[in-house]
């Protein structure tokens, strides 16, 4: 009786979620590929001129912003992810090895997780303000002259540094939370055993903590990569919809911005196909790096 298949009943329970998922998740995935191969699609009139394989991808690659978007996205990913993962790992290990004030530190460290990207992005923009911001003030204490991070005609390099500080700051909380819970799941006996065997602290960290935490590190790295490739709201938070310092508009454009740029021109012939093509390119890049990541981690992750 209990092993019976309850097909009809099961579908009744699944129906609400499945209807929504089919309309707003599965169908859009297929449709994105469909749109990306339409020639001169105009959605206002509902017309198109047959199919094309490369034309819409050509639009994406020839978009004057494409190279900037790709460069920015890759820099943001390959700089901020490793730095943030390492810092989070260290901080969570430190946090896990103290007793007093642990709760206080923990609460403070988790705060960035619950902030609004727009609000905190604006706060960071003002932190990096050339004349009135705290960052230049503090740098002044150690002898630096004020730097134009995000102000009028700030350079791409400075804006990028400021932005990386911001994204790293805001992404650490989640990683620390995950690492900390992972550390707390490691049996204390391994550390007792290591201690009896006179293991030095650094060796305990490298030979015991990191391997036993490797599934968590792997998970965080993958999700961080995926999340990082999708960076967009944070750019708006810090730089507004011009996506760059004033006078250097779109300097901080990202891959996702290409999708929304095209979507904003939705009435224009071919724009939606370009958006779909851009989304597929983004998906392709994400998938590629995820697979590379999995391949690299295969040998190093202990389950």
């Amino acid at each position: 009786m209990l092993e019976d298949k309850h097909n009809i009943k099961a579908w009744f329970y699944l129906a609400p979620a499945m209807v929504l998922l089919i309309i707003f998740t599965f169908y859009p995935i297929f449709n994105a590929f469909f749109l990306a191969f339409l020639r001169d699609f105009n959605y206002l009139q509902g017309t198109w001129e047959g199919f094309t394989f490369f034309e819409n991808f050509g639009f994406v690659f020839r978009n004057p912003n494409f190279r900037d978007a790709l460069t920015n996205t890759l820099i943001i990913t390959f700089v901020s992810v490793p730095i943030a993962v390492i810092i989070a790992l260290l901080v969570s290990v430190w946090l896990n090895s103290i007793v007093k004030f642990r709760g206080v530190f923990q609460t403070i460290f988790f705060l960035p997780y619950v902030t609004n990207a727009i609000a905190i992005g604006m706060a960071f923009a003002f932190l990096f303000n050339r004349n009135f911001g705290l960052v230049n003030t503090m740098l002044g204490w150690i002898g630096f002259s004020p730097i134009n991070w995000v102000g009028l005609r700030a350079t791409w390099g400075m804006a990028m540094i400021a932005f990386l500080v911001f994204t790293t700051w805001s992404s650490l909380a989640f990683r620390i939370m995950v690492f900390l819970s992972g550390l707390q799941n490691i049996d204390k006996q391994y550390y007792d055993a290591a201690r009896v065997d006179s293991t030095r602290r650094y060796r305990i960290f490298r030979r015991i903590t990191v391997p036993l935490l490797s599934p968590m590190i792997f998970y965080i790295t993958i999700t961080s990569f995926i999340g990082s490739f999708k960076t967009y709201t944070e750019v708006i938070g810090m730089f507004g919809e011009r996506l760059g310092p004033p006078g250097n508009d779109r300097a901080m454009i990202t891959m996702v911005a290409l999708v929304y740029d095209a979507l904003d021109r939705s009435g224009v012939t071919g724009a939606l196909s370009e958006a779909a093509a851009a989304a597929i390119v983004l998906f392709g890049i994400t998938l590629f790096f995820t697979l590379v990541n999995m391949q690299v981690s295969k040998k190093r992750v202990h389950y």
């Binding site: 998922l21 309309i23 707003f24 998740t25 599965f26 169908y27 859009p28 995935i29 449709n31 994105a32 749109l35 959605y43 995926i226 490739f229 999708k230 996702v256 999708v259 929304y260 979507l263 939705s266 939606l272 958006a275 779909a276 851009a278 989304a279 597929i280 983004l282 998906f283 994400t286 998938l287 995820t290």
Partner: peptide, 19 residues
Amino acid sequence: LIATMMIPGEMFVITNFLT
């Protein structure tokens, strides 16, 4: 379902907007 979690939301946005 689990596999779809890997696909970036931007893939859905375009069609969802049309929908």
